[in-house]
């Protein structure tokens, strides 16, 4: 009786210490093309937060962000050059680039992807791609 309660308590503690499965907000984008390798936390881009402030056109037409998580090959060199995130995170439109931890806030090892997508929720992606 006491033993099983103890085991229960221990396994509860273990479950709390383990990293949880991702339950991220729909459309949170993790970018980790280079971050892990450079010893930085991966970047989490809150897509939903930005669409409250800007229409899609601003980023995807004017600033040229491609519709693909990780597909823009963003680097710090490009950002301080005023491209991509650097077009706004420059101390004029929004807080500037020295706030490393605001962007680099992900758990190390999290892969590049967009969260909560329909594909992730399928039992198994059994469909074949269409021919071009």
């Amino acid at each position: 009786m006491y033993k099983s309660a103890l085991i229960g308590l221990l396994s509860m503690l273990a479950a709390m210490a383990l990293p949880q499965a991702a339950q991220a907000e729909y459309a949170d984008v993790v970018m980790n093309n280079y971050s892990d390798a450079a010893g930085m936390r991966p970047v989490v881009f809150p897509h939903w937060y930005h669409r409250i402030r800007f229409r899609c056109k601003v980023c995807h037409a004017d600033l040229g962000f491609k519709f693909k998580a990780g597909g823009n090959k963003i680097t710090m060199a490009k950002i301080i050059d005023g491209q991509f995130c650097g077009a706004c995170h420059n101390g004029e439109i929004s807080w500037s680039v020295e706030n490393c931890g605001m962007c680099h806030s992900g758990i190390a090892g999290t892969p590049t992807q967009i969260h909560g997508s329909t594909v992730q929720r399928l039992v198994a992606p059994t469909y074949k791609k269409l021919g071009k």
Binding site: Q20, A21, A22, E25, V30, G101, S105, A108, T110
Partner: peptide, 23 residues
């Protein structure tokens, strides 16, 4: 709509994580 520190992708040990706005 979990807050960043509990969503499984943000590092709760990063101070800035707690500054981010919960959805």
């Amino acid at each position: 709509n979990l807050p960043p520190a509990e969503d499984g992708i943000h590092d709760a040990d990063n101070d800035n994580t707690h500054v981010l706005q919960p959805p």
